[in-house]
């Protein structure tokens, strides 16, 4: 989704639809929908096909719409050599580390802070909650350079820590877990207390298992968010060691004149495959996550 922490998602009833009677214009509807599907897939198809041809074919502007015979060498070149001096394999690894750490980190940090806010009473509870909430209004785009300066003062430029930690707080995930925790019946807590279970045990044995669906939904959304980061890595990860695949691919088209378009296309496919796979494989949780949570 977005690099903006702000204002994504809201609760919508997404229960199963009542069956609706099919009208006479069904064929027209199907035709328009299929046209939509084709139009949406067209750019992807072109890149997929282009990545199996040699540089000369694409350079001549033939725009092949059918597969060619250079798939293996193009993908090997993208993986080993890459562009702009960083091997594609390395960039994919960096993107994977970044996306997984951001997704899992945001979930972990948010679930424990929501737990604290909901299941305890303590001074400054409201203040703590509001200060998390208000970060919705401070997406990285509006505080780019001061944030960069903090990270550079802490010596975190060109490290995984610098890529990940500054974006790992999540107001939206905290709000979602808080909302969900409110619905856990008081009897559960009372029963746990009667059994002599402390707050950590209750968290581990009751709250965490109950939150599984919410965590899965958030994971899809946050993995995509993490993988697709652009502005922040562009600033903070300038060395080859930590270059992500999205940034690396864009850098490859920087010098128009001698761009190896077939390698760019292969890298492009590698860059979009992991998040697309996660969304399609986890579609059920993803749709639930989008329509029922915030970001």
């Amino acid at each position: 989704m977005s690099t903006t922490e702000a204002t994504q998602g809201l609760a919508l009833p997404a229960e199963a639809a009542p069956p609706r009677r099919a009208g006479g214009s069904d064929r027209v509807a199907h035709a328009i929908l299929l046209l939509g599907v084709v139009l949406f897939a067209l750019p992807l198809w072109i890149v997929l096909m282009g990545s199996t041809h040699d540089a000369a074919t694409i350079g001549r502007g033939e725009v092949p719409l059918l597969p060619g015979g250079h798939a293996v060498e193009n993908y090997t070149a993208a993986w080993q050599r890459g562009g702009a001096g960083v091997p594609g394999g390395r960039m994919l690894w960096n993107s994977t580390v970044m996306a997984l750490s951001i997704a899992l980190g945001k979930i972990a940090i948010s679930i424990i802070s929501a737990y604290a806010v909901v299941f305890f009473r303590f001074p400054f509870r409201k203040a703590a909650f509001w200060s998390i909430f208000i970060t919705l209004m401070l997406p990285v785009e509006v505080r780019i350079f001061p944030t960069f300066k903090v990270v550079s003062d802490l010596g975190m430029v060109n490290t995984y820590a610098g890529l990940i930690i500054p974006v790992i707080a999540s107001a939206t995930a905290t709000l979602l877990f808080r909302q969900f925790f409110m619905t856990i019946p008081d009897e559960f807590v009372e029963a746990a207390k009667m059994d002599g279970a402390g707050p950590l045990r209750f968290f581990w044995d009751v709250v965490l298992p109950l939150s599984r669906t919410n965590m899965a939904a958030l994971f899809v959304i946050l993995f995509v968010y993490g993988w697709n980061q652009y502005l922040w890595p562009l600033l903070v990860a300038t060395s080859a060691d930590v270059e992500t695949v999205v940034i690396g691919m864009v850098k490859m088209i920087g010098s128009e004149a001698n761009t190896e378009w077939n390698i760019v296309m292969a890298t492009c496919v590698l860059a979009l495959l992991p998040p697309v796979a996660v969304v399609i494989l986890m579609q059920r949780w993803f749709v639930k996550g989008l329509t029922e949570t915030e970001k």
Partner: peptide, 20 residues
Amino acid sequence: LLIWPYAIAPAVAAVLWIFL
């Protein structure tokens, strides 16, 4: 068939459109 573009990074979407 229509939700996958959600997973595409804005910068990657731009590159796809270059080829169009």
